[in-house]
Nucleic acid binder design. Sequence first.
DNA 1: TCTGGGGTCCTAGGACCC
DNA 2: TCTGGGGTCCTAGGACCC
Length: 425
Amino acid sequence: MIALADCNNFYASCERVFDPSLNGKPVVVLSNNDGCVIARSNEAKALGIPMGAPVFQYKKLIEAERVQVFSTNFALYGDMSRRVMNILSESARDIEIYSIDEAFLDLGKGSDAELLQTVRILRKKVLQYTGIPVSIGVAPSKILAKIATHVAKKDPSCGFCYLLTDPIKRDTVLADYPVREIWGIGRRTAEKLRNMGIAKAAAFVKLSDAFILREFTITGLRMKQELLGKPAISFESSGKPKKAICTARSFGEMITSYEFLEQAVASHAVSCADKLRRQRSCAAAMTIFIHTNMFRKDLPQYCKNIVVKFPPTQNTLTLVRIAKNALREIYRENYAYKKAGVILMDFIQEDNRQGELFNAYPEDAREMELVRAVDLLNERYGRGTLRLADQGLLDKHALKQSRRSRSYTTRWSELLDISAGKSEK
DNA sequence: TCTGGGGTCCTAGGACCC
DNA sequence: TCTGGGGTCCTAGGACCC
C-alpha cells in the first residue's frame, strides 16, 4: 500500500511552530517580493483569501481581520521539510519526496487495522518531533492516496488519517469526488470534461479505455487505472537527479540597466551551477530568458528566450560566460525588465563525461579547482561569502521581504530566545 | 504603486535516415 | 496516369503539479 503524507498548510504551520501565539489566527505567507499569497492557514482560507491572491487586492481584508502576514522564509521551510522527511523515511520501507511538503511512502502489506495504526503513530511522531501537523492517506495507488489524504484533511472525524483500501468505500468516495480535484486534472482538462457532462470521478472511470485514450492520451488512461486501484504511476525513490535546473526571479522593481540585468543573470547562472554540482551532473544546454512586466499593459512588452548548447560542463565560470553571451543576444534596449531566469538542461553524470580528442580542457581543470575551493568556503562560511564580480556588489535585484521571520533553525544569530518565567517578545 | 518559483511529462510536427 | 514505407530524433508548446 502507498501512503501520502501531506503537511497541513505547511508554510503557515512552520511559522506557528516558532510563534505559538499565531495559533487560531489567520496566517498567510507571501511569494518573493511579497507579491502573492502562496500559503494560508485554515482561518485565512475561511476568510476567502484565495491561493495566489495578489496582496494589494486583499490589503483591506488583511488589515480588517488582522491577518498575520509573513514573507517567504525558505531557509526555515526547507529545514523543517528535511526534518519531517527524515522522520517519515525512518518509518517506511521506501520514500518518494514529492515536494517540499509531501511524500509518498511505501508501507508494504498489512491489514487495514495495522496500516491505520502505523500512520496514526507516524502522524503523532512528526507532530511531536517537529510541531508540523500532517495528513496521511493510504490506498493501493498514488492517485487514490492523494484522494485519501484529501478526505483525511477535510473530514474532522478521521483524525487526519484515512484509508481508501476497500473497493466499496472507494466507489462511494469517487461518486462524490469532483474531477477537477483529481491529481493530474487541471483547468483545461476539467473544462473539457465539464463540456462532456462529466463532473465526478465516478463518471470518469466509467468511460471506455479507447475513448479516454483518444481524448485524454495515455495520461488519462493511467488516471482511470489508478482511480480503480491499479497502480499505473510508478513509485520513484527519492534522490534521482533532476533533468532540468532552473533559477529565476522577478525583480523588486523594474530594471532598465543592462548592467543590473547582467548581474542578475550571472547570479542565476551561479545558483544553477551550484545545484548542478550538488547532484553531480554536467549540463550541455542552457536556456536564458528575460521579460518585461506583463501586467503593465501601458508599457511596451518584450519577452525572449534563447537556447545555447555546449560541451557538458559544471564549471560556474563557463556557465556564467555562456549566460552573459546569451543575454547579449536577446537583450533589447528601452524596455523595463521585470524577470530573468536561467535553466540548465541535457545533463550527464559528472563521471560519465566524455573527454575531447583535441582539447583536454586544461583551462577547465584549473578553473574547476577554483570552483571547488569556492564551494568549500561558501559551505563553511555561508552561501554568498565568496562571489563573482559578475554578480555585482549592489543587490539591486535583491528581494523585497519586509516581513520575514527569523531563520530559527539555520542561523546561530537567529535562534529562538527562551527565558524562564517571562514571556518573550 | 503592488501580480512567485521550480519542476515533470506528453504530443505533434518537422527533419532526417535507409 | 501512376511516385513507398518505416523509423528515429529533436523541438516547441501545452498541461499539469506544489
